[in-house]
């Protein structure tokens, strides 16, 4: 009976507990699992204790850990680094014209005007016909002309006028146009010297827009006006017209010099050119006697006459002769 009762009771109990024994423990464990998962998620979630422990004391807010935030921060950091590098390069290099080679000496203040340098009533006029790509023109302009300027031009004895004889290639024409455009802003002479100081191989791409802009920037030209001028066909036509005029004068190579209208045929070195200028000075009337004298290029560059120096020295010449092959 007891057993039976017990057994029945037990059996009943088992039967009664049976649904509980199968459901309640399962429900409890599931709930526990959920609680534990939630706790783990809370601990391990961004900003949670575990996340903070893993990342150290400082934890980024969730907004800064999204891919977009990381992309934005990355781009801005790279841009900031790039900006710093550019600014540092400009500071070290001086400006965007860092790669530019400066002429050997600056143009004396107040002496350059239009495409000439020197007093208009100077007793001796030197007309020089050059091509910006001609290496002998570079030698002449860089090494000889500065001495002529310091020796004769600043003394009021000589006025030099530049003429285009652009025949080597399109870069010659482009450079001549650029120099004239700089001249429109009163900087022809300085620009011309910069072009020669930065001369490269003939038709090798040196005289390009970037170089023109660099020089213009260095000389503080108005870039907008300058660049508009570069595309003005009238300027290029003027260069070509002057080149044609040079051909009519009998010029066959560069540089070709005319001293008081007489073509200089001596060696292209400083002693010989100086001697020719000295001879012209001796032959020329005093400035007071010829106040109206001008350095107009076409008027003074008369073909046919020759200004061979009278006291040629044995100093080495830049070029043996001025011939087309020289340029």
């Amino acid at each position: 009976m007891r057993l039976a009762e017990t057994g029945r009771g037990a059996g009943t109990a088992v039967e009664r507990r049976s649904p509980l024994s199968t459901n309640r423990p399962t429900s409890n464990s599931a709930a526990r699992r959920e609680r534990r998962a939630a706790q783990r998620a809370q601990r391990g979630a961004p900003g949670g204790p575990v996340a903070r422990e893993r990342r150290g004391a400082v934890a980024l807010p969730p907004a800064l850990r999204s891919p977009i935030a990381l992309i934005t921060i990355g781009v801005l950091v790279v841009a900031a680094i790039g900006l710093v590098l550019v600014l540092a390069q400009n500071v070290v290099g001086g400006s965007t014209t860092a790669a530019l080679t400066a002429p050997p000496q600056p143009v004396p203040a107040g002496l350059a005007h239009d495409r000439s340098i020197g007093k208009p009533n100077a007793p001796v006029k030197l007309d020089e016909w050059e091509d910006f790509q001609c290496p002998y023109c570079d030698e002449y302009t860089t090494n000889i002309e500065p001495h002529l300027i310091s020796q004769y031009v600043t003394a009021g004895q000589l006025a030099i006028t530049y003429h285009d004889f652009s025949f080597i290639g399109s870069e010659s024409l482009n450079a001549a146009v650029a120099a004239r455009c700089a001249g429109n802003q009163g900087q022809f002479w300085a620009y011309m010297e910069y072009l020669f100081a930065n001369q490269g191989p003939e038709n090798g791409g040196t005289f390009n827009q970037a170089l023109f802009d660099k020089i213009a920037t260095r000389l503080n030209l108005n870039l907008s006006t300058f660049n508009q001028c570069l595309t003005d066909p009238a300027v290029a036509s003027a260069v070509q017209a002057e080149t044609k005029q040079g051909q009519q004068l009998g010029i066959q190579g560069t540089p070709t010099l005319f001293i008081n209208g007489k073509q200089y045929t001596g060696a292209l070195d400083l002693p010989n050119i100086s001697a020719a200028i000295d001879a012209a000075l001796r032959a020329a009337p005093s400035p007071a006697a010829a106040p109206g004298a001008s350095a107009t290029p076409g008027a003074s560059a008369t073909p046919g006459a020759s200004a061979t120096p009278g006291a040629a020295s044995g100093a080495p010449a830049v070029a043996p002769s001025v011939t087309p092959a020289a340029s």
Partner: peptide, 10 residues
């Protein structure tokens, strides 16, 4: 009118 100038710039 500045396209040429900008395009021609370095």
């Amino acid at each position: 009118q500045g396209c040429d100038t900008v395009q021609a710039s370095q």
